[in-house]
Every structure is written in C-alpha cells, then in structure tokens.
C-alpha cells in the first residue's frame, strides 16, 4: 500500500505539472461563460441549457483526462525506461499497477472537484439555490465511473502494444457504452436469434457506465437519488474496477519489462519490436 501510494503521488504530480488539465479546464470555463453571456428573449434567468452545456464539457474533459492519463502510464514507463530503475527496487508489479490506478483515479477526482466547483458557481449564480445533495451525487458517481474507465484503460495499455491505439479503442468502447449501453436490451429483442443472444450477453457483461451519468437529473432539478441506490452503484463500479485491475495484473505480471531491450543495434529494433510476442512467459 505504501509503495502504491508513492507511485500514485508521482502520477498526480505529473497531472498537475502537465498542461492538459489546465487547457481543458480553461476551455470548459471559456465556452461555458460565452454561452452564459448569450441572452435569449431578454430573460436572464434561463439556466438549464447552461448547466447542460457545462456538464457536457465536464464529461468530455474528464473522459479525456482519465483515458489520456491512464493509457499513457505503463507505455511511458517502458518508453522512457523509467520502469527499469523502478522495478529494480523492492516493489512488486501488483503494487505498481495499484499505484498507477490510484494515482490516475485520485488525479481524476481532483480534476473533477475543480470542474464541479466551477459548475456549482455557475449554477448557483443563476438559480440562486443549490441542490447540494444532487450535486454531490453527480460528482461522486462521476468519480466512480472514472475509476472503471481508468482500470479499463490500464488493462488496455498492457494488452495493446501501441499506446495511441489503446487510447482510441478505449474511448470508442467507453463512448459506445455511454450512448448505447442502456438500450442494448431493446436492440436484442428486435434481432433474430444468434445475434439477439450475443447482444444480450454484451448487455449483461459490459460495465454500465451510463448509470453514473445523472446529468439529466441535475440539469432538470429532479430530486436526489435514494442514497442506498447510490451505495449500490458505488459497489457496482468498485466490482468492475477491481475486476479490470486484476486482469491487468494477470497480464502484466507475465510480460517482459520491455518488448525490446536497449543496447542492440538500432536497425534491428523496429523489426524486433513488431515481431516479439507481446506476452512472453516468465515461467518457461
């Protein structure tokens, strides 16, 4: 745990020393303020469209941060070869994975707090009231969803060789779940049998990230969700995150530290990198 926390602290430092987060935050703020400066029919108490736009930007930014940060972690350790001095220390690969996860997830949490604070200021300044419970539920559920996203992307980063394609693949999967996940059961009903079964299986297997998207409830001032239901959702997210982390560990513990080693002639490197099996067994 101590080792994992040390690794996590490095990940967090990296996030706040890179520009990505600030760029996304400033973009979100500027677009929201611009949209907020529009006047519709001289009515300056219109607020819901602004809440929706701001939350949409927050969701996009948070996904970009979560996937971007976690897709990079392990490939960057390999590319910069920082993994060599690190694993030469008394740290296990499981602790490394746990640390990377915690770091990315906590970093996302910090980013979310900043974003939601901005959102809170915007909505309170317009509505002159603050639905604190709904606000915290949205933040909380969003954060747990990012936990699943981070774990999933970490798994992708040890399975797929190229980090950029991993990021793209993860984003595509996550976006499809967010947009379609809830409806797969209805799609399954309309399909013929072999396909219908497949779609049903996918429906029950994928992590339903869209559950954690309570933007509509916040935008339209619905009552807060039952807290017990929130606890259930949290456990649901935790189960998937743990599952993905475990899978990441299973794959990573059997991998070579590098897909190619330094110190051989540069000409052969590229070929070898492509040719080497991504998963070489420890035990042979």
């Amino acid at each position: 745990m101590n080792n994992a926390l040390s690794v996590a602290s490095i990940v967090i430092k990296e996030l706040y020393r890179r520009k990505d987060f600030y760029v996304l935050f400033v973009l979100t703020a500027i677009i929201t303020l611009l949209m907020g400066s529009l006047h519709f029919f001289n009515d300056d108490r219109i607020v819901r469209y602004l809440k929706e736009i701001c939350l949409l930007l927050i969701w996009i930014s948070a996904l970009a941060i979560a996937v971007g940060t976690s897709a990079r972690q392990i490939p960057a350790e390999r590319e910069n070869r920082t993994i060599f001095p690190l694993l030469a220390k008394p740290i296990t690969r499981g602790q490394l994975i746990a640390g990377k996860f915690l770091g990315c997830w906590l970093a996302c949490g910090l980013a979310l707090i900043v974003f939601y604070f901005f959102f809170g200021v915007i909505s309170v300044s317009r509505e002159h009231q603050w639905a604190a419970a709904s606000f915290f539920q949205a933040l909380w559920l969003h954060w747990w969803m990012l936990g699943v996203v981070v774990a999933m992307t970490l798994l992708g980063s040890v399975v797929f060789a190229a980090p950029s394609s991993n990021g793209t693949i993860c984003l595509l999967i996550i976006l499809s779940i967010l947009l379609l996940g809830r409806h797969l059961n209805k799609v399954a009903v309309q399909l013929a049998e072999p396909m219908s079964g497949v779609v049903s299986a996918v429906y029950f297997a994928v992590p339903h990230l869209e559950l954690f998207d309570v933007r509509d409830l916040v935008v339209h001032n619905w009552d807060p969700i039952n807290w017990l239901i929130c606890v259930g959702a949290t456990l649901y997210a935790a189960a998937y995150a743990i599952f993905f982390l475990f899978a990441t560990w299973l794959v990573f513990r059997r991998q070579l530290v590098l897909r190619w080693q330094p110190g051989c002639s540069p000409g052969t490197r590229v070929g070898r990198a492509a040719a080497l099996s991504p998963i070489a067994c420890w035990a042979s």
Partner: peptide, 27 residues
Amino acid sequence: GYLPELTYYYKFLTAEELLRFYARIFR
C-alpha cells in the same frame, strides 16, 4: 543499487523529488 543502461527518469520531477520517491519505496 542499479544503474540502467541509457535511462531517463521522470522528467517532470526534480532530483530531490525523484530520490524521495525511490527512498520511500525502500522504506
């Protein structure tokens, strides 16, 4: 103590932070 061949360290850290990080792993 291990010095790898051609290695870069976490570029965004200072020397002090890097060493503190490794020191913590050594408990």
